[in-house]
Amino acid sequence: MGADLKVIGNADQDAQVECQIRDLTVTFTTDSGEFPALNHVNLDIIKSKITAIVGESGSGKSTLGLAILNGVAFPGKVTEGSVDFAEHGNVLKLRGKALRHFRGPVVGTVFQASQNAMNPLARVGKQILDLGRSHHYKDPRKLLHEAENLARRMAMDPSRVLTAYPHQLSGGMRQRMGIIMALVLKPKVLLLDEPTTALDLLTQSAVLEIIRSIHRERHLTTILITHDMGVVAEISDYIVVMYAGRVVEQGSTHETLRDPRHPYTRAILRAIPRLTGDLNRARPLEGSPPDLTQIPATGCVFRSRCSYRVPQCDLVAPILESVDTGHFVACHQEGLIRD
């Protein structure tokens, strides 16, 4: 598989691909054996769009995020595949200096807990200057100016937040500082790993609003990794649903949410309580999220929790196939689910 792979957003005729992931396989080696955290993942990240990668624990979404940065560390190892960025080639081949100049200036990253990603002993402004220095940024004043502008955009008082130590900021402010630090180097790709998980609903919606408006303004290619369907639905253009290291469904967010085709996507959407509508429609998804050490080697990875299971599912792993323009599903029973 892989060679003649489709562009996920080919509903858009003029869609350009920023990042092309092919056959990406990441294996974790432990005392009790080798386990695939990612299993032949194929993905196109469309330029200037927000692509959301969604999944539960054990889905491999965070490993995928690390692999995009060529940051998979022991005991994990990329055993197969490539991550090609337009103009930069296969990121997995980058080493040393070239890699450092890829992370940051090309792909800016916001981690799940930005508070832990900052140095607790240095003022935020200084950390931004250090960031510029380590990337040989010529004009520190311009960098600070940029940071100030971004802070103002995010409804923070620059003179206050840039002179503060990380612990003096609230969780929401730290998260926004994390976004600022990812953006000051003006990357063309923004990678957000669970950017709102530790935040309150109100702060979350404000941070999402900020991500949305900056994305529009700068035409950033944004990759959002999250477990929260709500966040995905709020801001993303494309959605990639992952389960047990495989992509099980992908397509435009609107289309996929309106008409989810994979049993897992459907089950997840049904398992989210909503604010209005009939509560009795909500159905829990039985079973536990996948445990990396117990993913079956053959057949469909979701079958143990699937209500559409047929004998074929035990034997053959379904491949991602087009069901509609730009909408792909990996399920043997896709046709039946539809009705």
């Binding site: 979350q204 919606s205 369907m229 609107h254 959407l269």
Partner: peptide
């Protein structure tokens, strides 16, 4: 009202 507004909307379904 602000708290309720902050709930994400599942666009496509809502």
């Amino acid at each position: 009202q602000a708290m309720l507004s902050a709930m994400p909307v599942l666009r496509g379904l809502e």
